[in-house]
Design a protein around this nucleic acid. Sequence first.
DNA 1: CATAAACGTGCACAAACGTGCAAATCGGCA
DNA 2: TGCCGATTTGCACGTTTGTGCACGTTTATG
Lengths: 268, 268
Amino acid sequence: MVKSAPPADDRNVLPEERQQRILARLRSEGRVVAVELAEVFEVSEDSIRRDLRELAARGLCKRVYGGALLPAVTLTPLKQRRTEHPLRKQALARQAVGLVKPGQTLLIDAGTTNAAIAAALPAGSGLSVITNAPHIAQLLLDREGFEVLLIGGRISASIGGAVGTQAVEQVRRLRADLCFPGACAIDAARGLWGFDSEESLFKRAMIEASDETVVVATDDKLGAVATYQVAELARVQHLVVEHSADRATRAAFSVHGVLVHRADAVPG
Amino acid sequence: MVKSAPPADDRNVLPEERQQRILARLRSEGRVVAVELAEVFEVSEDSIRRDLRELAARGLCKRVYGGALLPAVTLTPLKQRRTEHPLRKQALARQAVGLVKPGQTLLIDAGTTNAAIAAALPAGSGLSVITNAPHIAQLLLDREGFEVLLIGGRISASIGGAVGTQAVEQVRRLRADLCFPGACAIDAARGLWGFDSEESLFKRAMIEASDETVVVATDDKLGAVATYQVAELARVQHLVVEHSADRATRAAFSVHGVLVHRADAVPG
DNA sequence: CATAAACGTGCACAAACGTGCAAATCGGCA
DNA sequence: TGCCGATTTGCACGTTTGTGCACGTTTATG
């Protein structure tokens, strides 16, 4: 028996590990209470509060009296997120657009990175774009020269697009050449993951409706794992990463048969 | 066993969480009663009143004797009056928004006038908005405080929204309190008309899915007739016209049982 | 006008909080 | 092995926040 046993229990875990587990609890239950966490992890409330402070500082939770809740950022400023890393996303988008051939039908998920891709698509190349995000649809309508098909359904404000059953049903009746599911987390061994249950189901439907899948991921998504699995890595043909992406990480995906495309460096 | 109880219950919740749930109840039921809340959350009425006071201070509810209601549907706040949009459409929109009651479900067609209406809607009044226009959906998502349902389908660039068979099918499965079909032309004797075949079919479906219909028309639409009929005038309950609309024209609609609402004069 | 319910305010108390500090643990490095 | 710095942790301190109660006032209703 290994003496440094895998932490099946919640007692005696490393500080960082504890924070991850707190985050997992928060994501699954929607809230955490400081006193309860102190009891579960067998540490003082002070340590729990320190953890919550750090998580809140990274924007991963919202501190409230008595514990923490899911950040309001999850359900608020989508408008803000659009202007987060413009240059990095543009560099990624330019690389991703290189995979698109004239006349193809694309399935584009909601998300800021995907909006950058839509903005970088060449107009007048006979492209058909199917999307569940009103923002992306509007962007393409304004640019003209695209055939746009909108996926309807109830819209999640935090996601910025339709992801419910109705949306999945519509995608099932479609067929695309290429799809761009927004990545929440992608790992060479464990595949593609999402933070939300319905969102992940929708991404899976997208992938199943497309011949090829392109995952475009900023650095923070690489090697991360979220709560809900979207697909095995075998379903992903292309991965577009930033210039700054670790060489070893890129190799890890390559050996699984994924074509890794590296974006140009950004001046910043 | 259930020592660290998940928030399935309404008892033993964090203060801030409780406020969120009160707000959720308010949005779904349109009103909350202080005594009932005190019982449900197992706190004193004093705490409930404090919660309601804070929510009211943030403009999220309206305090009344015995509890709270959704904030009144007020006209557009000053800041929106300063946008660069045409003043005439804003005046129309402000008048149209006066017909909306808290908690209602609205069906809003594509079009610039309707976009002005969406921009003038009060946030946080528990309104559900169904629209076929990505632009309007995006606008409401950015403003927050709305439930948004998107009608999908192939998008016509000239119309700015989905109007095909698929869109009509989705509308048929819905039910709304109020609908705002964009008017191409409206005539007291011949009813509501549109320029495009599919667009007109979609507008008709909207009207059939709604309890009441509000037509908002700029002066140039009044007394005009287009190619495709959308509906008889009997299906239209409200007509919002500009301040400058002819008195005789307004009377012509009134005698057909249509409630005519005249917008305020614009300074221009 | 009478009455009960709902309300606001001030107050006391406990729980939760932040901060500073000392003890404990761990990983390098001579 | 022994020392040093960094990190983590628990404790003590004073402070803030939420809560319920008592009291007097306002509001709705018959």
